[in-house]
Simulated assay, not measured.
Amino acid sequence: MTDNTSPKSVIDESANAPQDIFAQFRESYQSKEAEDMSLQEYLDLCKDDKMAYANSSERLLDAIGEPTYIDTAKVKGELGNIFQGRTIAKYPAFDDFFGAEETIEKIVNHLRGAAQGTEYEKQVLYLLGPVGGGKSSLGERIKELMEKHPIYVLRDKKTGQLSPVHETPLGLFQNREQRKVVSDSFGIPERQMKKAMLSPWATKRLKEANGDPNEAFDVVRVWPSESNGIAVSK
């Protein structure tokens, strides 16, 4: 059998590989640069993209993805031995975690409850287990997944300062009548606005603008980032 690949072509392909990596890096970096928009543009975006107004649990659930179900009674090997014939859920975001499927399912169930606005939303998810059990690895993966979707943050129009608590524009709609109008016009569930609180920082700037939110604020799309200290803590 003859190998038709010349040494030159092999060298050329390997030489192009770093360039491809750097191009991908640049594209990824540029895709996550901050993007400015008006309050009206943000609300219009919410019509088409539910992630624009989703809470943190909803964004995380979307990043985790839908599971595939495995009947371990029909599987030979480690999974069958560990789960003894039970049906387990395998999530794409955790496909390299083996033996932790039941723990991951509990995490997902907690997030589902929080996404629906139940008491789970007020609770802290606490991982307890022996040393080497994978708690830190699960926590790190969850933080990575939190960086998948952007968030939309109020910004002071005059100074360009972002809200120090990275608050959503939905906190501007404080009374029931406003929430109903916004919900009917842009498809944003009222519960998303009801739970959004306006910070003292935003309240002060709104007062300085004589109650005109368009005068006080615009909106910036930013990406959660542990390294940049945006919406993900270390």
Score class of each variant (00 low, 15 high):
Q30K: 12
S227V: 13
L60P: 14
Y91C: 08
M146F: 06
K8Y: 10
K204I: 10
S227I: 12
E190T: 13
A23N: 12
L154Y: 02
A52Q: 08
D20M: 07
L60F: 14
G77S: 11
P224W: 01
E78P: 06
G113S: 03
S137N: 11
V108Y: 08
F22R: 02
K180G: 02
L198G: 03
Q161C: 03
R26V: 02
D62K: 13
E66D: 14
P92Y: 09
A23F: 10
V219I: 13
S137Y: 13
N210C: 12
P67S: 08
I64P: 05
S9Q: 15
K135T: 05
S136I: 07
F94V: 09
L172S: 05
E41S: 15
Q24H: 08
G77D: 07
K148E: 03
W201N: 04
S233T: 09
E140H: 10
Q24Y: 03
P213A: 03
I151Q: 04
E190C: 02
T159Y: 04
P7K: 07
S225P: 02
P200A: 02
E190D: 08
G139Y: 08
Q84E: 15
E177G: 00
G77Q: 12
L61Q: 14
E102Y: 09
N55K: 01
N214W: 05
Y152H: 10
L127N: 12
E167I: 03
